[in-house]
Design a protein around this nucleic acid. Structure first.
Length: 352
DNA sequence: TTAAACTCTCAGATTACGTCA
DNA sequence: TTTGACGTAATCTGAGAGTTT
């Protein structure tokens, strides 16, 4: 898996649905039509436009680091534009049945999920039409038990069959077990579905209801599945970003520790040097640099005082605690000293 | 106009399942 | 064949914001 970091959070138009046609056409040999209204992003005003703007507001409040996980390498667009077929999912999906046993993953997905579409078409969102226990979904329970008894070698098709069946089940927040008396069964998305979702996530990491519906229709998933996928995807992105940040901070800490060690050593050397220089007090104030935070002398730059007084023997009374004297004398002169610049810690995004 | 109820979406934590070494 | 690690779909919970009553 390729890990890429992109800087900045520039709002982009929601173009993945357009690109998807090309992508699917290239990868899968046919073109998927877009469900109605998918193009007019923002056309879903009334109650939801505020939600969308809310999503944009959230996005803008995020740090300007965007982590993109790219599970596949996109093919140049120039290779994707040939022989696009006009294909409407909503009206013709039954006529484009996949060939049985086809190795084409997405075609297969279309095939096995067709039934859920058939169930789905009763309602605008599917969710509402299917949440009732009296919906067509419950009639699939018998078939489901048949699928469950399949052999291990048919695991994949069995899984897809269950996906198909459950695709028509309730997508409310209540668990499937509550609604249908079945334990939840994890269903894996096909590679093509994942890639498609990934592509759309790269465009926008949040969905408005219309986009969610369009994606769900296009991928033959429940809107709830699309929603959950995006939620999990955001969580994974954040986790990865946290790991990157953590790694960066670790490196910062190591660097600062090393720097601190070096400065301590330098300070010790300076103190040792000054202990042999009784007239260090003649040292010009401007040659001392005081750390404002720890109020300790961090370095000196001049050697004039030291070299000028090397021939003077110091009386024993003058050899008091030189370091303390240095500090006490240096303190009042802080206004004349060059302050330490504020510590500039670049964020991970800058490092990356 | 205000407040309560409702709805929706989100993040975060967690569970549970499928896959693979 | 079994097992543990891992990835991830799905669920649960609480919070925030918008809408309705």
């Amino acid at each position: 898996m390729e890990l890429a970091l992109s800087l900045g959070d520039t709002p982009k138009p929601f173009t993945f649905l357009d690109k998807a046609q090309k992508m699917v056409n290239r990868d899968l040999g046919f073109c998927m039509g877009l469900g109605k209204g998918a193009a007019d992003r923002g056309g879903d005003h009334q109650s939801r436009n505020s939600r969308e703007s809310d999503g944009e507001r959230r996005g803008s409040s995020d740090p300007p680091v965007q982590l993109d996980l790219l599970p596949f390498s996109p093919v140049p667009r120039s290779q994707t534009s040939s022989s696009q077929l006009s294909f409407s999912w909503l009206t013709q999906h039954l006529t484009v049945a996949a060939e049985p046993g086809s190795s084409n993953g997405f075609t297969r997905a279309v095939d096995v999920n067709r039934r859920s579409l058939g169930v789905d078409k009763g309602g605008e969102e599917g969710t509402t039409a299917l949440s009732s226990p009296n919906s067509a979904a419950s009639s699939f329970q018998m078939d489901f038990s048949i699928y469950r008894s399949g052999s291990r070698s048919n695991k994949r098709s069995e899984n897809e069959a269950e996906n198909d069946i459950r695709g028509g089940m309730a997508s409310s927040r209540a668990s499937d077990e509550d609604e249908n008396g079945m334990a939840r069964k994890k269903l894996r998305l096909t590679k093509e579905q994942s890639a498609f979702l990934e592509e759309s996530f790269k465009e926008h990491n949040t969905l408005n209801p219309k986009q969610k519906l369009a994606l769900a229709k296009q991928l033959n998933l429940r809107p709830r599945q699309v929603e959950v996928w995006f939620q999990n995807r955001r969580a994974r992105t954040k986790l990865k970003q946290t790991e990157v940040d953590c790694e960066y901070l670790k490196r910062c800490c190591e660097t600062l520790t090393e720097e601190n060690r070096r400065l301590q050593k330098e300070l010790q050397e300076l103190r040792a040097l000054k202990s042999s220089q009784p007239f260090y007090m003649q040292l010009p104030a401007t040659t001392l640099t005081m750390c404002p935070s720890c109020e300790r002398v961090a370095s000196t730059s001049t050697s004039t005082a030291a070299t000028a007084n090397t021939n003077v023997t110091s009386p024993p009374a003058a050899t008091a605690d030189i370091a303390n004297t240095t500090l006490s004398l240096a303190k009042p002169r802080l206004t004349q000293m060059v302050p330490f610049p504020p510590l500039q810690v670049q964020g991970p995004q800058a490092a990356l």
